[in-house]
Amino acid sequence: MSIKTLRGLLIPFVALLLSGCNAVLLSPAGDVAVQQRNLIIISTVLMLIIIVPVIFLTLLFAWKYRASNKDAEYDPEWHHSTVLELLIWSAPLIIIIALGAVTWVSTHKLDPFRPLDRISEGREIPADVKPLVIEVVALDWKWLFLYPEQGIATVNEVAAPVDRPIQFKITASTVMNSFFVPSLAGQIYAMPGMETQLHAVMNKPGSYEGFSANYSGAGFSGMRFKFLGVSEGDFDKWVAQAKASPDALDRDSYLKLEQPSEKDPVHRYGSVSDGLYKAIVNRCVEANRMCVSDMMAMDAQGGAGIVGAYNVTSLDSATRNRLGLVDAPVKSYVGALCVGRDITGSPVSPAGRPL
């Protein structure tokens, strides 16, 4: 079989395979993702306005002025054309201005921290509708979702009513990940000790895939979850099912859940300890860890003092084991700086210099 024949057979086979692909980015189910899809299309079309004519004219010139075409016009003294200069420079300039305007508007309109102003095109958000708050924690290697209003939590499954705005508050336990539901909105990074946000809405019911779009270690490939777009009634039933779970997510159970594991099944918690998400963000789930917010408040007042020094130096064996510091050397800290006196009784620094 010749290469040409083989190539002819492969083309329809590849086309058949591609026909089964679901181009989710080009057919999303959420309004924010739809606007981002439109931005991609608009930007691509604007750039093709330049690219297509350039490719066409390149091929045209190569064919017209080929060596075998003796009838082509030959003008070795030609060096300038005002019309061509205007076309060459004005067209790209107009495209750049258009792209800049589209980018500036969309950057502000699609800011993930910006609350939504519509459910979908032509549909404003009712005045009495409040966003559904979902707190997201990227763990190794699974996703934890907390519903502060409903008092429940889930692992590797999240649900929200269709056409209701959602406010995601996103953080991570250890390394940076990326929260991404292609049908809902663009990816948002999840970082330890920080909180990012995403406002979005799902407009069509269904089960959609979510995953981490940032490599975070051995179990990264299995770090996936399901986003369920459901009706208000089905969402209430889903919440009721979660509340029926006998498991409670307190600080101790969270520290166990935080341990690295791969391809965890969906798990639901019927109750959640108050302030758990805040403690996760501030890196102080353990009882003997100072919260980042408290540390910053102390620093703003001039320093941590004795209490802060105690927290820094009092990592017990259980905490050191959980943090992987069992074999690490124990750090020593300066507890105080003593001021001495010389033979005349005047104070001197530790280096012996007069104060």
Rank of each mutant, 00 (worst) to 15 (best):
T5P: 04
G8M: 09
A15W: 05
L16C: 12
A23Y: 12
G30L: 00
V34K: 14
Q35R: 15
Q35D: 11
T44W: 09
T44G: 07
V45L: 04
I50H: 07
F56R: 10
T58Q: 10
K64Q: 14
Y65S: 01
R66L: 08
D71C: 04
E73W: 09
E77Q: 13
L86E: 02
L87K: 10
A91G: 01
I119R: 07
G122F: 00
P126L: 14
V129R: 10
V133G: 04
A138N: 06
L144W: 03
F145K: 15
V155R: 02
A159G: 13
P165E: 12
Q167V: 08
F168M: 05
P182V: 09
A185H: 05
T196I: 01
V201N: 05
K204L: 07
G210I: 07
S212M: 01
G219D: 00
L228H: 08
G233W: 02
A240D: 11
Q241I: 08
S245V: 14
L249W: 10
L255V: 00
P260G: 01
Y277S: 09
A279Y: 13
M295H: 02
D299K: 01
A309E: 09
Y310P: 00
V312H: 06
G324L: 03
D327Y: 13
A336R: 12
R341L: 10
S349C: 11
G352E: 13
P354Y: 09
